[in-house]
Simulated assay, not measured.
Amino acid sequence: MLVLTDRQKDILKIIIRDYTRTGMPVGSKALASEFPTHVSSATVRNDMAALESKGLIAKTHFSSGRVPSMRGYRYYVDNLVQPDPLDDSAEDLIKSSFNSEFNRIDEIVQESAKVLSDLTNYMAVTFNPEPGSNLKLGGFRLVKLDERQVMAIIVTNTGHVVNKIFRLTNVSSEQLETIVNIINSELVGKPLTQVAEKLRVDLPLLMTKYIQTPEGFLKIFGEMLNEAGRDRVHVDGELNLLQFAERQNLDRLKPLYNLLDTEGTVQKIINPNSHDVQVRIGSELPNDLLKDYSIITGTYDLNEYGQGVIAVIGPTRMPYSKIIGIVGALREELTKKLLGYYDDN
């Protein structure tokens, strides 16, 4: 456990604050001038040397000043940060955004990604609540488009819609309507896990009465159930990463964007191990492309309706107090909005 004097803590806070604001190393003379009480530059230099020996700050090649190290950021976040309260404009933005009319859970969580990106000016990622056993089949439709093509539509109890077009020949509109009626009467209102089991065990024999070779239809139906049951990921503000990339690291942006463009990879990267607001910094993240970035996550809990996550991806040189405060406040408002949606539906 690192032990710092109060003055060393203050120096670390000032270095991180100034470096966050300017991106420039911080020198002892500038530090001494920012103390509320008189402190000599020599005293500050001694304390900076102590912080450097503990690995909390580091010297750069092109300046006599110091910058925070990853270890310094970690100590700062764990021991010195206090979340900032939202200012009035941020509160107004959240309230006005969530006061809109929403027809699906997807729309609310997508809106939260936009709000989070707008408030932080960083990349935001938000996840729908994990479906679990509460995700149920809300409705099923088959629409004949022509003699060869049919559109299948699944609606879940949360309002999520999945549709696919597939080939199905030698089936009349009346037969399709019968299939729809059977599925809706037998399966609507049941958890998707039970629907998938019936799809495997009970439906094949039943469907042969109406479709000569039902395997293709059942395969499509199964794929749609899997898609409806997957966590949904919403991203906003990807281009914000550009403005914080160091000139020498611009060539890392393309592979970073490719990494963050894959839904499964994003889930693995964001995946928090805490229900609180959590900060992971640089080398703590599971990919070397993220070594100059931090991810702040907040888990929202909807009780029996599951849990979801909101997250901010930004440079390690970010104003942690402000961003932690925003993530904490937004997850509370998102929780209220989603619970209200479930109560109304």
Score class of each variant (00 low, 15 high):
151 M>T: 14
152 A>M: 15
152 A>T: 02
154 I>K: 00
154 I>T: 00
155 V>P: 03
155 V>A: 07
155 V>L: 11
157 N>A: 01
158 T>M: 07
158 T>C: 04
160 H>W: 03
161 V>K: 09
163 N>E: 10
163 N>V: 03
165 I>R: 15
166 F>G: 06
169 T>G: 06
170 N>I: 07
171 V>R: 00
172 S>F: 00
173 S>A: 06
174 E>L: 03
175 Q>I: 07
176 L>W: 03
177 E>K: 13
178 T>R: 08
181 N>R: 12
181 N>Q: 14
183 I>P: 05
186 E>M: 12
189 G>V: 05
193 T>Y: 07
194 Q>I: 13
194 Q>S: 11
198 K>Q: 12
198 K>M: 13
198 K>V: 04
199 L>N: 14
200 R>F: 05
201 V>C: 04
203 L>C: 04
207 M>Y: 04
208 T>V: 12
209 K>T: 11
211 I>D: 12
211 I>N: 09
211 I>R: 07
212 Q>P: 03
213 T>L: 08
215 E>G: 09
216 G>A: 11
218 L>N: 08
221 F>G: 02
224 M>E: 08
224 M>A: 13
227 E>D: 13
229 G>H: 02
231 D>Y: 09
232 R>P: 02
232 R>D: 05
233 V>S: 04
235 V>K: 12
236 D>F: 08
236 D>I: 01
236 D>W: 07
237 G>A: 07
238 E>K: 10
242 L>K: 09
243 Q>M: 09
243 Q>C: 03
244 F>K: 09
244 F>Y: 13
244 F>I: 15
246 E>P: 08
247 R>V: 01
249 N>P: 04
249 N>K: 13
250 L>C: 05
251 D>R: 15
252 R>N: 10
252 R>H: 06
253 L>C: 04
256 L>W: 03
257 Y>I: 15
257 Y>L: 13
257 Y>G: 08
258 N>L: 14
258 N>C: 06
260 L>D: 01
261 D>C: 10
262 T>I: 14
263 E>W: 07
264 G>F: 09
264 G>A: 11
265 T>V: 12
267 Q>K: 14
268 K>P: 06
270 I>K: 00
270 I>L: 05
271 N>F: 12
271 N>R: 15
273 N>Y: 10
